[in-house]
Amino acid sequence: MIKNPIHKRLEKLESWQHITFITCLCERMYPNYHLFCQVTNQQENARIYHNILNLVWEYLTVKDVKINFDNQLEKLENIIPDINDYDFYGIVPAVDACEALSELLHTIIAGSTLEQAVKVSQLSIQTVAIFLETELERELSEQELKNSDEIEQELDIQWQIYRLLNECEKRDISLISGLKTDLREQMISNIGIKIDC
């Protein structure tokens, strides 16, 4: 699996920065789940996923907000599709998006933020790698993956998010809100799925 040089650097960040980093990656994976829900006629599930993401952004930006994340995790677990129930590629990035959001909620509940940040970063890269292999109908070597525009773009975006967070001395609400706005305006996933929200 591709090693992302960012993983070592994530150690320097504080927990709020890790959580923001993971939330940004979930936001980028959301269109994959949204499209899956559209295709399988489960739009309500996409809405639940997005609501949970909204609550995490709220948790990051609103002082002393009280959110029951155990409850949100339960809601998420009810909408994770079973990979064995579907025989088309779209299930894979959809399940990855759910796994990323699940990791995010576990991070907030349990507090082991660095480990989860690395895990979700890796997961997002893996989604892109599987997408490329599915398109080309063959396995790709690590070098081929590294040289692909799609992986390069994924690493670049993760790096940009990291760099912006790393520049903050303390929790910067306007930066967090800005990241959310930018990602939502683009609404393009890590594998190039674009949705209108």
Rank of each mutant, 00 (worst) to 15 (best):
Y89L: 11
L165W: 01
C168E: 15
T134E: 07
L35I: 13
V62I: 13
I161N: 02
E154R: 09
E115V: 12
L55F: 10
N41S: 06
L136W: 05
E135R: 09
E152M: 13
F88T: 15
C98P: 00
Q42V: 01
C98W: 08
N84R: 05
L164Y: 06
L165V: 09
A110S: 09
L60E: 11
L140G: 02
Q122P: 00
V118M: 14
S141V: 06
I83N: 00
E152C: 12
T127M: 04
I91L: 05
F36Q: 01
C37R: 00
V118R: 14
N147K: 12
F36L: 05
Q116H: 13
N54I: 13
N78E: 15
E133G: 07
D70Q: 12
S124E: 12
Y33H: 00
D87R: 10
E77C: 07
Q153A: 08
Q43E: 13
D149L: 08
A117W: 02
E152S: 15
N54M: 10
T134P: 00
K119I: 10
E99V: 15
V56G: 07
I67V: 14
E142V: 15
A117C: 09
I48K: 10
S148K: 02
E99C: 12
Q38R: 08
V62P: 01
I108R: 01
E77Q: 15
Y86L: 04
A129C: 03
H50K: 08
L104I: 06
L136A: 05
Y59N: 04
I108P: 02
I79M: 07
